[in-house]
């Protein structure tokens, strides 16, 4: 056989392999979305957002879980973005090449892949046991610890990508280093910084294990962070494993809500990022 033919055959085989792999990945995603939609969408009505979780067999919704998830994810993400952006900035702009910097980066990577249940246990030890009670604060802190290394990592990566000439140009005008970072480097990198925060949110929005140890769950509506707090993942966990049909239906609705929230926040983030790049 001549070489050109062999090469063409190799090419076809390779294209087919990659296409099949893509198809497998997409199939899984479509199946997940399909089962979420088909089993969850029927259960969505106004009661989901207005009523708290019911006793088996009676009417109810998920308002307590939705509220808890929004509060704990929101506060957790705020903490994570605050610490993560500063830590990532330090790694990229100041201490990244020192021995301490290398240690920080290594530990951050370890934290990045730490099992979330361990983080739940850790927060249980430092925030739940000493204060004799599960609380929304403990849940938010556990989520923050999960999202923090992601934000740190993406911040460092994205800042390192900014050309050093940009920093030099700012310094050459007489601006201090900190000023250049805040006004120029962060601004140039804002699309990436938003992406980091979104990745962090996507990670924590579905986390169950750390919340079981920290926020516990709450069948009543509560916006008091010092009390045990409901959340969508823990409610799904509880309802999906129950023997009651109506609870299982609510679990599907909750799962659909999380998926929709992650999806829409991702889309919004992408739009913001694109706008940021354009201006």
């Amino acid at each position: 056989m001549d070489r050109a033919l062999i090469r063409r055959i190799q090419n076809i085989i390779f294209v087919v392999l990659t296409a099949v792999a893509t198809l497998i990945a997409l199939t899984a995603l479509v199946l997940i979305l399909w089962s979420l939609l088909s089993k969850g969408i029927g259960g969505i009505d106004s009661k989901i957002f207005t009523m708290t979780q019911p006793a088996p067999g009676s009417e109810g919704g998920l308002s307590n879980a939705i509220m808890g998830s929004i509060m704990m994810c929101g506060i957790g993400l705020l903490i994570a973005v605050f610490v993560g952006i500063l830590a990532g900035t330090w790694l990229s702009e100041y201490g990244g090449n020192t021995a301490y910097g290398h240690a920080v980066r290594f530990l951050n990577d370890v934290l990045l892949s730490a099992p979330s249940i361990l983080i739940g246990l850790f927060v249980y030890e430092i925030l739940v046991r000493p204060f004799h009670g599960f609380s929304g604060w403990a849940g938010a802190v556990a989520l923050a610890i999960l999202a923090m290394p992601i934000v740190t990592r993406t911040t460092e990566d994205i800042l390192s990508l900014q050309p050093s000439a940009l920093r030099e140009a700012g310094m050459a005008l007489g601006a201090s280093r900190a000023f250049v970072i805040r006004k120029i480097v962060w601004k140039a990198a804002r699309a990436g910084l938003v992406t980091g925060a979104l990745l962090g949110f996507a990670r924590i929005s579905g986390e169950t294990a750390p919340l079981l140890f920290t926020a516990l769950g709450n069948q009543f509506f509560s916006a008091d962070l010092s009390q045990p707090m409901a959340s969508l993942p823990t409610t799904i966990f509880q309802f999906a494993l129950s023997a009651y049909d109506d609870w299982q239906r609510l679990a599907w609705v909750g799962a659909l809500l999380i998926a929709v929230a992650v999806l829409s926040i991702n889309i919004i983030g992408r739009v913001i990022a694109r706008e940021a790049r354009r201006s």
């Binding site: 050309p163 000439a165 030099e168 700012g170 050459a172 007489g174 120029i184 601004k187 140039a188």
Partner: peptide, 15 residues
């Protein structure tokens, strides 16, 4: 730096 300005090889407009 206020009295000595600099222009670089690649254009460096700020964002």
């Amino acid at each position: 730096r206020a009295r000595v300005g600099m222009v670089f090889q690649k254009p460096t407009p700020f964002p």
